[in-house]
C-alpha cells in the first residue's frame, strides 16, 4: 500500500498503480463526427460537380449524335449549324482555330515564361527574386475579359497594324493568341520557377566546379533536373489556353473558318460555345445540342492533355 491510498483526504490515486483498475474507455466526441462529415461533404461537392457536368454534357450530346453521325461531326470541314437550308456540322474549323490560337499562345508563353523562370531562379539576387516573383504572379489576376479588350482595342490596331504592319482584320487569331500567351506566362513562369529553384544547390556547384558558366549550368543541368516540373507547368498553361473563352470570343472573331493562317479571323471551340449559349436556339433542337457536342469534345481534349501531363511528369521525374 502506498501512502496516497492510505491518506483519507489525499488526492485520488493516479491511474496505473499496481492493482488499481485502469479506465481506458473512450469518451464520445460528437464534434469529431460533425467535422468529419463537413469535410467529406466538401470533398464530395467537387466530385459530384464533375459527375454532374459529364452527365449534363453527355445527354444532349448523345441526342445530337442521333441526328448527326459522329464521323460527320469529327470529319467534316464546314461548320454551319444555323444554316437552315444546308446545315453542316463538321467541327474542324472550330478545332483548327483553337489549335492555331493555342500554338501562337505557346510560342509566346514558353520562351517568355521559361526565360522569366530561369532569370528569377538562377540569375536574380534573392532580394530581386523576392520582389519580382509576386509581380509576375500578379499578371494571373487580371480578368480575362480585360485581356480580351486589350487584344481587340490595342494589340490588333496598334501593335499589329500600325507598328508591325501585318495585314490583319478587326478580329484575328494572332492578336488573340498573343494576348492569351501573355495571360498564361505567369502560370508557366511561376510553376517552372518553383521547379528550377527546387533543384539542389549541389548540382549547380558540381557544374560550376567543372568550369561551366551560368548559362550552361542553367540549360544543361538545372533545366533537365527540373524537367518534370517544367513540363507540368507548360501543360497546365496549355490547358488554360485551350479552355480560355473570353479572349478568343472577343478578339478572334465569330466566323467559323477552316484555316491555319493566324492573320485571319476564326471561331474557336470556346468562342462558339460562348456566342451560341446566348439562348437563340430552342432547347432540344439540333443546333442547341451542338453546344454540348462541342463542349464534350473540349472536355475530352483537355482530359487527354491532362493525362499526357501526368505521364510526362512521371516519365521525367528525377530523384536528385
Amino acid at each position: 500500500m502506498t501512502t496516497t491510498t492510505t491518506t483519507p483526504a489525499g488526492p485520488p490515486s493516479p491511474a496505473g498503480l499496481r492493482g488499481d483498475p485502469v479506465d481506458l474507455s473512450g469518451r464520445s466526441r460528437p464534434g469529431e463526427a460533425v467535422i468529419r462529415g463537413v469535410l467529406f461533404a466538401a470533398a464530395l461537392v467537387s466530385v459530384l460537380t464533375t459527375v454532374g457536368i459529364v452527365i449534363a454534357l453527355l445527354r444532349p450530346a448523345v441526342e445530337f449524335f442521333r441526328d448527326v453521325p459522329v464521323w460527320e461531326f469529327l470529319g467534316g470541314t464546314r461548320w454551319a449549324p444555323n444554316d437552315s437550308g444546308n446545315p453542316d456540322f463538321g467541327v474542324w474549323p472550330l478545332v483548327s482555330a483553337t489549335l492555331v490560337i493555342t500554338v501562337v499562345a505557346l510560342v509566346v508563353a514558353i520562351p517568355l515564361g521559361l526565360g522569366a523562370a530561369m532569370y528569377l531562379s538562377e540569375y536574380a539576387s534573392p532580394e530581386m527574386r523576392r520582389r519580382l516573383k509576386p509581380i509576375v504572379e500578379l499578371l494571373a489576376g487580371v480578368p480575362s475579359v480585360v485581356y480580351g479588350f486589350f487584344a481587340l482595342t490595342f494589340v490588333t490596331p496598334n501593335l499589329l497594324q500600325k507598328v508591325l504592319h501585318i495585314d490583319v482584320g478587326f478580329t484575328n487569331a494572332l492578336a488573340a493568341g498573343l494576348v492569351l500567351g501573355v495571360m498564361i506566362i505567369p502560370t508557366i513562369a511561376s510553376l517552372s520557377e518553383d521547379a528550377l529553384f527546387a533543384v539542389p544547390l549541389s548540382l549547380r556547384q558540381g557544374s560550376f566546379a567543372m568550369g561551366a558558366n551560368r548559362m550552361q549550368t542553367t540549360l544543361r543541368v538545372v533545366l533537365p533536373a527540373a524537367m518534370s516540373g517544367v513540363a507540368a507547368a507548360v501543360i497546365l498553361g496549355l490547358s488554360r489556353a485551350v479552355g480560355e473563352t473570353m479572349i478568343v470570343a472577343l478578339a478572334a472573331g465569330s466566323r467559323p473558318h477552316l484555316s491555319l493562317d493566324p492573320r485571319e479571323g476564326m471561331q474557336a471551340m470556346t468562342g462558339y460555345i460562348a456566342s451560341t449559349a446566348g439562348g437563340e436556339n430552342p432547347v432540344g433542337s439540333t443546333s442547341y445540342n451542338t453546344l454540348f457536342a462541342v463542349g464534350l469534345l473540349l472536355f475530352v481534349i483537355t482530359l487527354i492533355i491532362n493525362v499526357i501531363s501526368i505521364a510526362l511528369v512521371r516519365r521525367y521525374r528525377q530523384e536528385y
Binding site: S202, L203, S207, A209, M210, A212, N213, R220
Partner: peptide, 23 residues
C-alpha cells in the same frame, strides 16, 4: 569533388563528357 556525390541527372557517359563539352 564534393562531400555528397552530386552526379548530374544524365547518363553516366554524359556526366563524364559534360566538363569537356562545356569548356
Amino acid at each position: 569533388v564534393f562531400q555528397k556525390p552530386n552526379p548530374f541527372p544524365k547518363s553516366i557517359y554524359d556526366n563524364v563528357a559534360y566538363g569537356p563539352r562545356v569548356t
